[in-house]
Structure formats: structure tokens, C-alpha cells
Nucleic acid binder design. Sequence first.
RNA 1: GCCUCAGUAGCUCAGCUGGUUAGAGCACUUGACUGUUAAUCAAGGGGUCCUAGGUUCGAAUCCUAGCUGGGGCGCCA
Length: 459
Amino acid sequence: MTVKRLYGTYDTQSDRKITLFGWVRNHRPQKAFGFIDLNDGTYFETIQVVYDKSHLDNFEEIRKTRIGSSLRVEGSVERTPDRPQPFEIKARNIQVVGDSQEDYPIQPKRHSREFLREHAHLRSRTNLFTAVFRVRSLLTHAIHKFFQDRDFIHLASPIITASDAEGAGEMFQVTTLDVDNPPKSGKTVDYSKDFFGRKANLTVSGQLQAEAFAQAFKDVYTFGPTFRAEKSHTATHASEFWMIEPEIAFADLRDDMDLAEEMVKEIIGYVMKHAEKELAFLNKFVEKGLLEKLESVVNSTFARITHREAVEILKTAERKFENAPSYEKDLATEHEKHLAKHFDAPVFVTDWPKHIKAFYMRLNDDQNTVAAMDLIVPQAGEIIGGSQREERYDVLLRRMEEMNVDSDELQWYLDLRKYGTTPHAGFGLGFDRMLMYITGVANIRDVIPFPRTPKNCEF
RNA sequence: GCCUCAGUAGCUCAGCUGGUUAGAGCACUUGACUGUUAAUCAAGGGGUCCUAGGUUCGAAUCCUAGCUGGGGCGCCA
């Protein structure tokens, strides 16, 4: 029996004998009886186990059970309509499976997030992280379900890549060479001796490979880890994070945004349906108004503005920005925050100046902007970045030259434009940022089970 | 990489204009308690005041450097 199943069926379980396994969340012993709040991980709520001296031969041992201990409980279900909880377990037999020591750091009280990060192996036993990580699991499923329901093909894009031309930031190198004494060819390291016969890195994006698959399966997506070696110290950056990267053929930027909007609404709706207890808790203790926010996103139409229009909004804003908004520049974090607040809803910003965006984005007819879109949301910032891809061989080649991207290394990518090219588009969704948005948790380190950030690779 | 704040008991924090033996709540240990809900009540144990230097008769407190963490920004997505 599990706590989750009991909460669904306690009406029909009355007086039936059941066995539960779980951990002690709280314990209130008294002279001849006591109460244990037991959590077995299957459900957000705990279950109250009542035990008393007359039914337990090991009463004194159980009475001394500390928080964190694991137990096996035999007993019967008893309805308690007059008490805070709808039912409880009358214990007939309790065995300590694993005792918890005196110095167990997790107490039945509020802990700081910083403290819990340093105890990442235990923090998943707290209410907050129970809620966050169950929502994380549900969100993973919701995303697969969304795409699978629409006949998208999932592909596992490679984690190791030889290309450093993806233009998405600093990469972690992967090597089997002896870094203290690498083989040399003249003064430089001889990578022909390395495992792959060339320099290799951890991927920063599965997009290019997804594009290749989209030219066979039409609608595809990746869902996997991504690695960035930037020394970023912010609440929204991690060195290892997960991305969802759909890629759709015979599609343009509008189709891309339609897909992104539909996806965001549907996956939020799924979580709201399947994580009621967790969201209610987050709504109460983490972000007041969370449920209202999610509800309104599901029922809203996302704003869609061009980069030019975004800058105009910023220029006419009441407040002063440290970075002056410019038609030629990227939006700063403070600009994104302002726009998110201005619309009080997710907002797509489209048609960005070409020189601040990646080489593969489709050049607009004005020759100055590209068919790119970012989705900005309050709190988590940019959670989606996407574009229509440049499907014209000559234009793509020219753009690569303009942006100093090595076209020889990416000949396979250019080939896709030679053999039955299609207009196509895609985007990358930062999974962990999406989770921040849905849970209201303000730091990405608190939505990743064991987060990796610069100078932090414990656990 | 830049700016800023912080580091005192297992946790959250007070003490910091230098001055006796560094405190509180929770947790822990022991005891009381026949229905508790972060139970309550009583007693007890528990300290490298982040580290290293320095100033001083005297440093948790002042100065310098470093380490660690938070927040803001940048890079980036």
C-alpha cells in the first residue's frame, strides 16, 4: 500500500489491515501513545500513524524514533472526520528499518534555501523539494506527451560533439589525453592523438542534428542535457541544464510561435491537473498568486511584438534603464523584466537585428533582421529562443562567412539545403527555467536535483 | 569578470560605538503529559565566533588579505 493510493481509497479501506513503508517527517510522542507523520514519497501529504503502548511490544523503542528514520508500519485505516486529517493509521506493529542519528539536519521547521543546497542529498525530503521535484517529473512527462500526441519523433541528439561552431557559448572539452602532458605537434596539442582523433566538446545544443531529422520525419524534438562553461553567477544560469528543442519542417516563424504557445499552455495545464497539492503548497509558501498566474497563462493569448516595437516600448517607459535600449542591440535583463511586467503575460519578441543572432536564422527581406523569436516571461526571463531556419543554401553560406563560422566543419549541415530543402523552424525551451516559472521558485539551483554551477560540482 | 551584503551552537538569528564566564528560539538528551497537528511544560549537554595575519593591556567586535555563500550586473541561453 502507498500513501497516494490510501488518499484515493481510504473510504473503502476502513478497518482493513495494511502495511506501509516510509520516513518519519514529524513525531509527537506522549506517555502511553504517540503520533508519527509518515511520508512514503508517493504523495505530497503525510499520513498520521497513531500508536499506543497496549498494541506495541517495542513501544519504548518507537517512542524514541527520531525524524528522518525509515519505518515499516502495519495497522488499520480509521476515518477521522472530526480532525484536521480525513483518516489515520492505527498501528498494530511498527518496525524501525533504519534509525536516524541525532544530527539529522532536516527539521520540522523552515530552512533557508542556501542551507538546503548544501544538503542536496537530503533536501528532497522537505515539503518544498518534494513539491518541486514531483512537478519536475510531471513536467517531463507532459512535454513528451505533448509532442508524442502530435506524432513528433523524439531523437537523442549527441552529448559529445566535435563541432565548436554552434555559436552558443563556451564549451566543456572532452578528452582522454593526459592534460598534464599532452602529445604535441610543434607547440600546439596534437588532437589527432585524442580519443575521437579531433578536439571534442560537450554539446551546447542539439538543434543542428534535430534539423537533419526534421528533414526526414518532418516534426521532431530533442529532450536532453546541455552544457555551458560560462562563469555565470545568476539565478537563471546553470552549467548543466535540460533543453527541449522541437524542429518542424514545412513551417515558418508563425507556425513556430503557435507551437511554442500551444506547448506552454498545455504543459502548464497538465501540471495543474496532476499536481494540485504541490501547486497549492507552492502558491501558499513560495509565490503568492502562482495559481492565478498559471491559470491566466493557460487562458491568455501571448503578446507578439517585434524587436523594434519592444525597443519603442522601452524608450517611452517611465523608468530609466542602466543600459539604454537600442534598435541595434540585444535586450538586457532589465529590459526583459520590464517587458514581461508591461504585458503581465508571456511575450514573444520577433525579428531581431541579424548581427546579434545566430548564423542559421533566416534572413528577412529587409536584409537587416532575422526571423527569430524569444519568449519572455516574468521571473524566469527568456525561456524560449527560436527561429525560422535559413533554408537557402547560398544565403546560409554567405551568413556563415559573415559570422566567421567554419563552413567546412558544417558541410553536412549545408547539405541539408542541397537535398530537398524545406522552410523549417524550431525553438529551444529551457526546461529548468520553465520549471522555475511553474513552481515560482526563484533560483535555478533549487529546481535541479543536484545543480552544477561554476565552482560547484558536489554530490 | 565587476559591484554589493553576509559568515557566531545542528538550524534561524541576537550580541559588533573593543572590556567579567558569548546568548535566545527550534533541534538533541532526560523527565512530565490519555488525541497531538511545526503539540506543550521542566531540566541538561552543545561554540575553531569562516581562515590567516595585524592593531591593542585586551578582539566575535577594529584593519588587511583570502575562502565560502547570497543578491545585483556582465558573459550567455
